[in-house]
Design a protein around this nucleic acid. Structure first.
Length: 325
DNA sequence: CCTTAGATTAAATAGGCTGC
DNA sequence: GCAGCCTATTTAATCTAAGG
């Protein structure tokens, strides 16, 4: 990390931009326009090769060139790769970061929305939660609340057993991501005799909220414009979108304030993967097929023809989301 | 080895904007 | 006036480097 970049005071934005483009496993998101940076860098190199002097560049261009050089230095073989690659490949590399950025933003929007409305559909009809849960805060959720605790309780465990309840609250019993909570089951009822009974058929409202539109959750939708599904040409639920919704719902019930794939307490990543694993298991194909059919009847029976997909980063990201979050 | 301050990052949040 | 998109700001977690 001995960074030879002198970091003049007027150049900190440049540093950010360079680090944002590392092609490592970690995604950096503060870059404004990675594509421009890459393209300009290549153009600069071409100009310099043609005998153009560096002094002819503007201050901004020199700074950009500097960032570009730093980039080449930091990433092994990046120089040869980028100078050999076609224009299309450069665009793809830059877009990957934009898409990741869009995906993060979209997920964040969903988390925010579900956090509020989930309160409505875990509240028994005509009753109130006691104690009440704030719509905009995660405090008071998780195992410490009777309702969210019951829904988060692993399906095989008995929440009404005080000993178990206390151990869940104290953390003596740690719930891993592949121990599925009761909230995944239709009517919040788990059937030990038939584990498939109702499994993954509970998050309709959340799915509608995300995919069709927030108001499509209500009896009388007041949508005045198209929702996500129609905008992005989504015609059906996929295995990944079912797992995505389940993950969002599960997270919304926890008291954790920050969504993190790698957080081992919420264990969201393992939870998501465990559902995808089940849905992709060839031996479960029949059950999965009928599950998908069921979901599509719930969500898309009223959806006739989707519009053409739009082209924004977020739109691309949401398409990606249905294949890989 | 551990602590600690500072930097860096991802994510949450509020709120504004646009198109219908 | 809704739905989705976008931006600026805040917050929390993680990393780094220096010092004890």
């Amino acid at each position: 990390m001995s960074d030879s970049l002198p970091t003049p005071t007027d150049c900190d934005s440049g540093r950010k931009r360079s680090s944002a483009l590392e092609l490592g496993p970690r995604k950096k998101s503060c870059v404004q326009d990675p594509l421009t940076l890459l393209c300009n860098g290549i153009i600069f190199f071409g100009d310099l090769a043609d005998g153009k002097s560096e002094e002819e560049l503007t201050a901004t261009e020199r700074r950009e060139l500097k960032v570009f050089r730093e980039l080449l230095k930091q990433i092994p073989h990046f120089e040869s790769r980028i100078l050999e690659s076609s224009e299309e490949e450069v665009i793809i590399m830059a877009d990957l970061h934009q898409i990741q950025k869009g995906a993060n933003g979209a997920r964040s929007d969903d988390t925010k929305g579900i956090k509020g409305t989930v309160i409505d559909w875990i509240t028994p009809k005509g009753q109130a939660l006691s104690p009440p849960i704030a719509r905009n805060s995660k405090t008071g959720r998780g195992f410490h609340h009777e309702r969210t605790g019951a829904l988060l309780c692993p399906a095989g465990l008995d929440w009404s057993n005080n000993d178990i309840k206390e151990k869940l609250r104290a953390g003596t019993i740690r719930v891993a991501g592949d121990q599925w909570p009761l909230v995944l089951y239709d009517g919040f009822r788990y059937d030990p005799e038939d584990p498939w009974n109702g499994l993954l058929r509970s998050g309709i409202l959340a799915a509608k909220f995300v995919f069709t539109s927030p108001s499509s959750v209500d009896q009388e939708p007041k949508a005045t414009r198209s929702g996500n599904a129609r905008i992005h040409g989504m015609r059906a639920m996929t295995k990944a979108s079912i797992a995505y919704i389940a993950t969002q719902v599960r997270f919304s019930l926890t008291s954790a304030a920050v969504f993190s794939r790698t957080d081992l307490v919420t264990d969201s990543e393992r939870f998501y993967n465990s559902i995808v694993d089940l849905l992709e298991d060839p031996e479960e194909k029949d059950e999965v097929d009928s599950l998908l059919t069921w979901w599509n009847r719930q969500l898309f029976s009223a959806y006739a023809e989707p519009e053409r997909p739009s082209n924004t980063n977020t739109a691309l990201a949401k398409i990606v989301r249905n294949a890989w979050p």
